[in-house]
């Protein structure tokens, strides 16, 4: 075996990963010396809009007849590139989810998100209520926005590991939610 192949770090990483993924060495991370050699793409910046203004979605975008929260969230996943989505009612209860939902669901995350957003609401009353949030954790990203529907209640639509989405997309989702809200189960 030539020295160009034997002992190369890529081959060593492949060997370690194959052993871990096949269960021969469960739980051990490949021993990569130093920092990751890879650069990371930054999310694409959203198009700039004047502060406080939402970009109007095209009026000819058809609204869909959705009757279930998981249907609405699956539709939302087609608008926002993310691995999962969930919705939280004004009381902090997760009322639907879609995509790659973990075994124990998003109930805890949804409740905590609702609490965090309520805390942000009172940070500075002069700035008005919180409209959207984007959190970056060590392993995942969580982003979401509030949409006021019937009676002015604020439902939160949240996404896991979403790519950046613009105000037009947010408006489109909010518009669909408002259209479907009265029949969503």
């Amino acid at each position: 075996m030539t020295t160009n192949t034997v002992g190369s770090s890529d081959v060593e990483i492949a060997r370690a990963l194959s052993r871990r993924l096949s269960g021969l060495e469960p739980g051990s991370e490949p021993n990569i010396a130093g920092e990751s050699p890879y650069l990371q793409f930054a999310p694409s910046p959203p198009e700039e809009t004047p502060a406080g203004e939402l970009t109007e979605a095209p009026n000819d975008d058809p609204l869909n007849d959705l009757t279930r929260w998981d249907e609405f969230l699956a539709w939302s996943l087609n608008k926002v590139r993310s691995s999962a989505a969930f919705a939280v009612d004004p009381q902090g209860f997760v009322i639907g989810s879609s995509g790659n939902v973990p075994e124990d669901g998003f109930e805890g995350t949804g409740a905590e998100l609702s609490y965090v957003m309520s805390q942000a609401d009172v940070m500075n009353p002069e700035m008005g209520g919180l409209r959207s949030i984007a959190l970056e954790f060590a392993n995942r990203r969580l982003s979401g926005f509030r949409s006021e529907v019937a009676g002015g209640e604020g439902f939160v639509v949240a996404f896991i590991d979403a790519e950046e989405f613009d105000d037009a997309t947010r408006t489109q989702i909010a518009r669909q939610l408002e259209h479907s809200f009265s029949v969503l189960l």
Binding site: T5, V11, I13, L17, S18, L21, S83, N100, E103, D161
Partner: peptide, 24 residues
């Protein structure tokens, strides 16, 4: 052979972050 680390890294990532039921 030299590209094996790439696909294995992606499988590892998907298993950890997107699809825990994925297995090699």
């Amino acid at each position: 052979f030299r590209t094996m680390s790439q696909i294995l890294r992606v499988i590892d990532h998907v298993q950890q972050h997107e699809n825990p039921s994925l297995q090699l």
